[in-house]
Nucleic acid binder design. Structure first.
Lengths: 249, 249
DNA sequence: CGCGCGTTTGACATGACTCAAATGCTGTGG
DNA sequence: CCACAGCATTTGAGTCATGTCAAACGCGCG
């Protein structure tokens, strides 16, 4: 079996941030992807002051669960997270994967409790935004409000597309769509659009796409046979991104 | 076949509103379900002034499509709508059904275009909220901003549950969950939780739940044989709501 | 009243799941 | 640093829930 080689480690540029966890928004490499975008200096300082920058979370660490009271939104600083919701009988659905600059817990605003469970997929850190404070300073920062609305709206649009994926797409189309979504997000963050590490397990991918683990595994094998990708464990290299695009349905 | 009888016509209490389309927010029967909740009188008047109350939309009328520029949010005033998104090849997914007091187009905020297509399922009317104006007055009404965030967050939470439904539930569980969701929303609007009209076609239901029309039709028949419901065309009567709840998975 | 589309029902096909087992990888403790 | 345990992944074989195709039916709209 051919090996995927020279894969760029995921977000290794962010190692610096993990070491210096108290870097302020204006100095943060995620600045342009994150909430502060469009704020003036004064407002930025006020926002900065309500943010609690978290300790490092190890792989598997639970950020929150749906039985806990909602207090804060989180923005991924480094690493990655998955969110899940559970049916009564324990079945659960991976509702999303979250990368640096992305918000977690937007579905919990103004509910008593979080609406999902969030877990770190690798060593990760977050910025915690206590919602009461955010609400408070938001009253005086229209630009921040717009940002919040935009964020929510974007996640909503993404979820509608996931509904299309889950409801109408074949297994091939699901996986192709998923890989391209990751590719795009990595590219937006300044990383390679074709070579990256999958921080989530096959099980998580399968669950998220409404497939069985075995199906995902077989698809990875077949995509590789067909020359679309190289996959070795968690290391992925996209070899024919155009063909992959045509497969998305 | 037993007939479902004495079905309460859907939203006929709202006939009055349809006749007098210019009723202001403070006089609207949807007030408590709608955006103005929590606004003081001054703010309410300002909001009132930017709202454009629509003509009556006939069944099948398209409110907007995803190739049109985004200008306004819509709140259903009477009747009901469905939204869909389309894959390149024309397959589409019904992403939601919308009833009085519910927002349409929240997924389009701060995108160039609408992200989905919206179509009336029956004779319906809407309040149109030009987003630029809403944004403008929102700067001075924290309470309105909170309302907007809450609305978006609630729709997001609902969509996450739809992902669970589409990804993990069996056909039976999907239909049971769907019927109970309608039941709950009708009840919140002051109508019967057990007897109502389905304004959408079997095809729309099937599409929304990721099933084939034939499957939905068979399920309705079986649910009726099992004494869970009575269904006659579009008239639905829930006979064993508890058992239905146990079936939701 | 009649046409057409939406719905129902039946028969059959199949994509993806489940079960099973081999293999590989990773983290841990000695 | 290595060896082992346990979990993740891959691969194969067989099954099943749901989709597809086909045809009859009937309701509702014009």
């Amino acid at each position: 079996m051919t090996q995927a080689t020279n894969i760029t480690p995921l977000f290794n540029n962010l190692a610096k941030i993990e070491r210096d966890r108290n870097v302020a928004c204006h100095a943060c490499s995620l600045y342009s992807l994150c909430l502060p975008l469009g704020l003036n200096n004064n407002d930025l300082v006020r926002l900065d002051n309500i943010i609690e920058r978290s300790q490092n979370h190890k792989r598997g660490h639970t950020l929150f669960t749906s039985d806990q009271p909602f207090r804060s939104l989180f923005v991924v600083r480094s690493g990655s997270f998955k969110t899940t919701i559970s049916a009564k009988d324990g079945r659960d659905q991976v509702t999303g994967f979250y990368f640096p600059g992305e918000f977690i817990a937007l579905d919990a605003i103004h509910q008593q409790n979080y609406q999902s469970n969030a877990k770190a997929l690798e060593s990760s850190s977050v910025c915690e935004l206590p919602f009461n404070n955010l609400e408070e300073i938001g009253k005086e920062m229209p630009q921040l409000q717009i940002q919040m609305l935009t964020r929510l709206s974007k996640e909503l649009a993404g979820d509608k597309n996931l509904m299309l994926l889950l409801g109408k797409k074949t297994a091939d189309e699901k996986l192709a769509t998923f890989l391209l979504s990751l590719s795009k997000r990595f590219q937006e963050r300044g990383f390679s659009a074709t070579d990256f590490q999958l921080s989530m397990s096959r099980g998580d991918i399968a669950n998220h796409l409404g497939l069985a683990v075995e199906t995902v595994s077989r698809l990875f094998s077949r995509f590789q046979e067909e020359g679309l990708i190289l996959i070795a464990g968690k290391a992925l290299s996209i070899k024919d991104i155009e063909k992959l695009r045509l497969m998305c349905g």
